[in-house]
Design a protein around this nucleic acid. Structure first.
Lengths: 228, 228
DNA sequence: AAGCATCGGATTGTCGACAATTAAAAGCAA
DNA sequence: TTGCTTTTAATTGTCGACAATCCGATGCTT
């Protein structure tokens, strides 16, 4: 997914990390599941040593929660969790926009624009398939985050928070008119960055994220009331 | 240092983590040092398994940097690193202040105020010893961060970023008139929070952190020019 | 029957050894 | 002597087994 997650020297722990992480994000391993180290070790055909390394990293991005001597559970999706998470996202990606407006090169901006055009045409062809929207959106945000050029900010957003964000979006879906509006909002944001108007880019990004939050929030509420 | 880092069931990995982390922050293990797993295992008298768990967590709070199959090094302190780090701190602790003004109970606020008075008297007695200032400052910020009641924000600030912040401050020192001014700034911040004026608390905290940054920045510049 | 203590099973934490990879030393050619 | 290749030693990654701890079931007491 992310352009170049590991340069070279991919270790077994890295492979199983990606596998389990994907399984959790996509819901193949359901939220709230108790994690058994021996079971997962058998399932992915490796020893517990690299598996535990992978679990440590999963804990880092809040996909599992560990308690000493008791084991780990896949995180549960909740409204409170969503709100806390998106509260931070608004702030951090807003900051990323301000910094991106300051630090992104003209070429980087041009690349993001090309990316958006490409996504737009892809969406026209594959209308309705939300996965492409998902991938495109993640990619856009990822580019802006990188554009901030702040290594700690990049690390927090793209390595720690973003998998949980994707988990909410993949499992609760992005639906309705938001799908098509997101593209326009992306365009507006990159325009502001291109104009070196960090303040506006910040504002637009916060609204973009807030709208996305409301969308998922509704899904959660509906799901919670219908079969609780 | 932090009130209750591990509830119970302290494992060997936890112990060695605290030991190594302190050694790095205090500079006992110098910045930039190559880390040898066998050596550290002998030094702290345990196997490599819990040691590696500890190293994984040290990487998480940016105190060491690992490259696959190549080993780990203690992070180096630099001006660029300081600026990136404090840029984030300003933003995140500013947010923490806004949230704290909203969510902290009257009792929590009263406790922080008592804490400040206690630190003030302690400082009068042990004037000049910057360690107490350091501990007091960390404690104040820690309380405000907790007051935000946002678990992700708390995790990022107090578990991931703060040890690196402390490393800069311990190794480069907090000197001059800043030491005494910090107390007044803390007072002003908690007053704003008590008045439920999140916007002001945010502003004051950002200035407080910016001033702290400038102070360390100067130390780094002097050190860099004097013996390079 | 309800509550508590005890026991058993399973899981996590830790250990020492082996395999794979890397970084540096030694050797050779130009 | 310089540059490259080869070898070698050390380090990291991985494995299987053991020890310590916890959760659930069983039995006893009141």
């Amino acid at each position: 997914m992310l352009a170049t997650e590991f340069k070279d020297a991919i270790t077994a722990a890295d492979r199983v990390l990606v596998q389990i992480r994907t399984a959790i994000v996509e819901g193949e391993i359901p939220a709230g599941t108790k994690i058994s180290e021996p079971e997962l070790a058998r399932r992915y055909d490796l020893s517990r040593a690299p598996l535990r390394e992978a679990l440590a990293r999963l804990e880092r991005c809040h996909l599992i929660e560990r308690t000493p001597n008791a084991g780990a559970r896949v995180v549960k999706l909740s409204i409170d969790g969503l709100r806390s998470l998106y509260q931070l996202r608004e702030e951090l990606e807003g900051l990323a926009c301000r910094l991106a407006a300051e630090h992104m090169t003209e070429q980087e901006i041009a690349e993001v624009r090309a990316l958006l055009d490409q996504h737009l045409s892809t969406q026209r062809v594959r209308e309705g398939e939300s996965y492409y929207q998902e991938a495109g959106d993640v990619d856009f945000h990822y580019r802006v985050i990188l554009g901030s050029k702040n290594p700690y900010l990049i690390n927090i957003l793209s390595d720690e928070l973003y998998f949980l964000v994707r988990m909410y979006r993949v499992q609760l879906g992005m639906n309705g008119p938001r799908v098509s509006r997101a593209f326009d909002e992306h365009k507006a944001i990159i325009n502001a960055i291109a104009n070196r108007d960090g303040e506006l880019a910040d504002l637009l990004m916060r609204r973009h994220i807030a709208a996305s939050k409301r969308n998922i929030e509704q899904q959660l509420l509906q799901q919670g009331t219908s079969h609780g």
